[in-house]
Design a protein around this nucleic acid. Structure first.
Lengths: 338, 338
DNA sequence: CTGAAAGCGCTTACAG
DNA sequence: CTGAAAGCGCTTACAG
């Protein structure tokens, strides 16, 4: 197991140097020798030992990926996109789950830096407020790319969704349908995407001369079906004549729909409900829930592309310039807002 | 970036050998020296370079995982279990998607062997019928563990679900509820778990003196909602007085429910439908679908445990003996079979 | 066009 | 109890 350069060299009566160069297509090796070596290497299925090569090249062809919540379907679609591109370019992906914990996120970053991965992709945990570990990556040999849950305070390449616009569109849609009192089940106060979606909601109200009322807003910590149910119940207790509800995740919207169904509140006749993320369950529940589709797969692809570009710049000793890619989103209309 | 042993040795006026041994707690280093070295290493945050260490230890602390379908929620729960245990034991996980392709599966195995991962966990692609690549793993330095979709033809450790029993239970439940003509939307003919679940269906019929009728069985290639819809439609066209349907995946069951709802066929009044896998959508749809819960998280944990045990045996030069762990399953009763 | 030599950062058998 | 030396498998600057 594990043929070495030396063995091949011996077999072919050339030096290890020549074998190494031939396999890397160096221009100072004769075509005839290259052919001979390449053919033999192919025949015996030789693959250079990556760990040994790293010691010289400083490249592992490994990427570290930190996802905040491994149960979130959205991230799998992102992962699928990344994996497709990684495969094409001979990279392998180490997957990590920060479990929404800042501390664990920091430890995982340390482990990945220590593994000398060529790049680290992170979607931040909900409660990450200190960014020392991200700056550590920026000072390491690994490229850093943030996706989906990012921070304005870190200067690196990013792939995000236009969350403000999305919050706006979801809210505007309810207004267009005739809703007068639109509530909002929003996410926590920290991550940028939660902030932005909420801004979108406010901005839509403002633009349509609706009064913004904090009583209509509830904050969900976990963004679960349970949370959605509970918060909707609380909103209805206030008797505010709610006739629209913008939920900033599909699980929250499903919880809201469940509460309404159990309490005989008609959807969309009495209240229109809109979700976000376009997970499968949103289309399967009765009534199907209007949602906003994020191009998750595309997000994965773009993240990899940004990374590959940075690697190329690095190789050519060009100064890497950080970019932010903003992805499109699409309102998927269903019965819950008909 | 990247402090080395040598630098630490120089700083502390000892040899690199001593530093290496102290950090590994060798017994032939004095306590006082160990203390000094460990403290310093901790202070400066020294971590040995894994790639360089590999060259001597032949261990990468890396595990390769091949999943056949990255969009399947089941595998994410498995992954979550694996990740939890991996983290505890300082392993990192390289994730790969075979996309149900035997060819890609073979390539990924090659890549992982080449990466010198300590272990490879695979859930086989649906159409994998040749096992040369698995035998290659068995002859390599990496341990092989199959989970969920395995094969009797490969001799290695495995973690599986008692699929036969599960098929049996789902079918028996419908019989107990009074169904007389029970159909079956089954999976493809190859993977072991599809074969076994189908056997469970047949065995339950037999045990209850029901006549087995191939007309009542439809084979789904993709196990999707669409497939479920289409196949259910076809079954109903045959006018066999179907009053029960055992589906060997939740998406299939959801498709079946959709067809029935759209065509005014009452569930469970006219037909009872049972799924498998207990995905979220199964509980969210109206009516909620009875399903069988697989202990996915547990499967991930057990797979890791089996692997860790093998590593330990290897280290102690004990002959590794392959084990098969069979996990429990549980029928989750819901309205669709009430 | 080819190859000897140094070195990446570690571990471990061996000597003292 | 400590350390010099060899070697893991590669790449690349340098010499010829």
């Amino acid at each position: 197991m594990g043929l070495t350069l030396k063995e091949i060299a011996k077999e072919l009566n050339v030096s290890p140097t020549t074998v190494s160069k031939a396999l890397q297509n160096y221009s100072d090796i004769s075509e005839i020798t290259k052919e001979k070596i390449k053919n033999y290497a192919r025949k015996v299925g030789y693959q250079p030992n990556k760990q040994a090569a790293y010691l010289r090249t400083r490249k592992t062809k490994l990427i570290g990926l930190i996802i905040p919540n491994i149960e979130n379907y959205f991230f799998f679609k992102v992962l699928k996109g990344m994996l497709q591109e990684a495969n094409k370019n001979e990279y392998q992906l180490i997957i990590c789950n920060s479990n929404e914990s800042e501390d664990l996120e920091k430890k995982l970053v340390d482990d990945l830096i220590n593994q000398k991965v060529d790049g680290i992709f992170i979607s931040l945990a909900k409660d990450t407020i200190n960014f020392d570990h991200l700056n550590k990556v920026l000072n390491s040999e690994s490229s850093l790319i943030l996706f989906d849950r990012t921070s304005r305070l870190v200067n690196c390449s990013k792939v995000v969704i236009d969350d403000e616009k999305m919050g706006f569109i979801a809210t505007q849609n309810l207004i267009d349908k005739g809703c007068k009192k639109i509530g909002n089940l929003r996410g926590t106060l920290i991550p940028q995407n939660s902030i932005d979606r909420f801004s979108g909601y406010r901005n839509a109200l403002e633009k349509n001369n609706f009064k913004f009322d904090t009583n209509l807003v509830a904050i969900s910590k976990k963004s679960t079906v349970k949370d959605g149910y509970k918060l909707t119940k609380e909103l209805f207790k206030k008797e505010l004549e709610l006739d629209g509800l913008v939920c900033f995740s599909d699980p929250l919207a499903i919880g809201a729909v469940k509460f309404c169904k159990e309490n005989g509140i008609g959807i969309p006749s009495e209240i229109r409900v809109s979700g976000f993320g376009n997970i499968e369950s949103a289309s399967v529940i009765t009534p199907p829930i209007t949602s906003i589709d994020q191009e998750a797969f595309e997000m994965g692809v773009k993240t990899m592309e940004l990374f590959l570009k940075e690697q190329l710049d690095l190789k050519q000793k060009i100064n890497v310039s950080f970019k932010t890619i903003i992805l499109k989103t699409k309102l998927i209309e269903r019965e819950s807002t008909a």
